[in-house]
Design a protein around this nucleic acid. Structure first.
Length: 231
DNA sequence: GCCCAGGGGGCTC
DNA sequence: GAGCCCCATGGG
């Protein structure tokens, strides 16, 4: 598919998803530090459980880099217990705040004033931060135009026959970033909508994404989902 | 009881 | 460097 066509296809998918699901409100008006904590805690974890962990950090006065550094690993693990994997996640949170203090004196504005490429390289050196989490931090906490690729996105690309020849994270990310206007607000909403679609139907009914997105018919508010061509 | 949720690290081969 | 296992709770 040539680039002009791909651009139209990706925008069309976005329009259909937005029309169907509406705005997703991922991390609206949150402090960047809270968003970063959420990005780490949500790894392989349902968001409802992450909210409880963040609430317990806040209620105990520990939703800050300095406070998390002062807590022992065991204390921190106890506070975030509700989101699962609490021992590894306590280590990951600590590794991030140690780095943040050392590298940027806890100044997130300074951290985000770095270029996207350089910041991404730095984040990837931190224990517990891989590509998806690094990109989530830059997009959702830093408002940077970086497209986040996750398992749902890959599955949906697959269903639509859009997976690039090289199936890597970088190649999937490039597909979106080379064919969409580089706007953080668009990338923010687009990724959240793909996750919604993935949770809604893609996993249970592998053909739903194809049915709803590749058929050449407009989506109207109130349309039933999915359509009748289920596998 | 069973399955999986907005991954990443570490090990094996 | 792809393929596997581990981490662990809570909700449907």
């Amino acid at each position: 598919m040539d680039d002009g066509k791909l651009n139209q296809t990706l925008l069309d998918i976005y329009a259909r998803l937005f029309h169907r699901y509406g705005p997703q409100h991922w991390w609206p008006a949150r402090e960047p530090f809270e968003v970063i904590v959420g990005a780490i805690l949500t790894q392989s974890t349902a968001w409802t459980n992450v909210e409880k962990a963040i609430a317990s950090l806040r209620a105990s006065g520990n939703l800050s880099a300095g406070a998390i550094r002062r807590l022992s690993g065991t204390e921190l693990a106890g506070l975030i217990r509700s989101c699962g994997y609490y021992n590894v996640k306590a280590k990951r949170l600590k590794s991030f705040v140690e780095w943040l203090g050392e590298r940027y004196s806890d100044n997130l504005d300074a951290m985000f004033s770095n270029s996207i490429g350089e910041l991404r390289r730095e984040l990837l050196t931190i224990y517990g931060i891989g590509e998806e989490t690094a990109d989530s931090i830059m997009l959702y906490a830093g408002d940077k135009p970086v497209f986040v690729i996750d398992a749902y996105t890959r599955r949906i690309l697959d269903r639509l026959g859009l997976t690039p020849a090289e199936k890597s994270y970088a190649a999937c990310q490039k597909l979106f970033m080379m064919n969409l206007p580089p706007e953080a607000a668009l990338f923010n909403e687009y990724h959240a909508l793909l996750v919604h679609l993935g949770k809604d139907a893609c996993r249970k009914s592998p053909r739903c994404a194809v049915c709803c997105l590749s058929e050449n018919k407009p989506v109207k508010p109130g349309d039933k989902f999915p359509c009748s061509r289920l596998a």
